[in-house]
């Protein structure tokens, strides 16, 4: 099976440690990871802002870059969701039957990280150790668009030393929402504030989620208020092999 990493534009540019951690986890499990350098972005920023024509070349780039792979692993529920559920919209609008066929063929090969680990590799214990108190925020798109269910939680529960605590109101959106964060900045901030408050109430040392974008939102609020809670991507926790103190 040929497995590719889609680093995502945000991961590649702003959070390279998340992509590196994804590679670490996959390689530890014996996966030969490819990083097709032709990749850029899934097109979601344009699609969700209504710029479907603009998204089309980006969607084409995605499907060219990953044409030869059996599985594409994305450390993002939101980007995986876009590939699986939104590329088709862009392709249909383009009127290009070839692109529609390509998208239909390839969309289901996109896996969010926890899906790939649990469903494809059949693993929940990835050999990580992380002796910290952790709260997990299920991001909206992994929860509702992909339906990853308890996969991330099962992965976290198998991490040695990790104590998973409840996050009050965990299913509620953090308020990021892509360009929503800028177009409706005040509502987005109010939602982010409430999410940060529940992170604080959880008394976790580390907040974990499967999307760097949501972590940027929650972490941005926590950092602004100088709350000493770290935010980490699921991949980073699964890559960790920290000895307990």
């Amino acid at each position: 099976m040929r497995v590719a990493l889609m680093a995502t534009c945000l991961g590649d540019t702003m959070f390279p440690d998340v992509a590196k951690a994804t590679v670490t986890v996959l390689e530890r499990l014996g996966v030969d990871v490819d990083f097709p350098e032709a990749q850029t972005c899934c097109g979601q920023p344009m699609i969700n802002t209504g710029y479907l024509d603009e998204a089309e070349p980006v969607v084409r780039v995605y499907h060219r870059a990953f044409a030869d792979h059996d599985a594409v692993v994305l450390p993002s529920g939101s980007c995986a969701g876009s590939v699986r559920h939104q590329h088709e919209i862009v392709a249909r609008r383009s009127g290009d039957a070839g692109l529609v066929a390509t998208v239909e063929r390839q969309a289901h090969r996109a896996y969010e990280l926890s899906e790939f680990l649990v469903d494809v590799l059949g693993v929940t214990d990835v050999g990580a150790s992380f002796p910290h108190t952790v709260a997990y925020h299920p991001t909206c798109h992994s929860l509702r668009m992909l339906g990853v269910g308890d996969r991330p939680r099962r992965l976290l529960e198998a991490v040695r030393g990790l104590e998973l605590v409840d996050l009050p109101g965990e299913r509620e959106c953090c308020g990021f929402g892509g360009t929503f964060a800028l177009k409706n900045a005040e509502v987005s901030s109010a939602m982010g504030q409430d999410k940060a408050d529940s992170v604080i109430a959880s008394e976790a040392e580390v907040l974990v989620a499967g999307d760097s974008s949501c972590l940027m939102q929650i972490g941005g609020v926590l950092s602004r208020q100088r709350v000493g809670v770290r935010t980490m991507h699921l991949a980073q926790v699964l890559a960790a092999q920290e000895e307990s103190a």
């Binding site: 680093a7 991961g11 590649d12 540019t13 702003m14 959070f15 390279p16 992509a19 590196k20 990083f35 350098e37 964060a181 800028l182 900045a185 901030s189 982010g192 504030q193 940027m216 939102q217 972490g219 941005g220 609020v221 950092s223 602004r224």
Partner: peptide, 20 residues
Amino acid sequence: AWTRTRDLPVPPTESFRRWW
């Protein structure tokens, strides 16, 4: 619109792409 209420991480000096 972002930084009024939220900090933003400084972009890393090296992208994942370059690191790879």
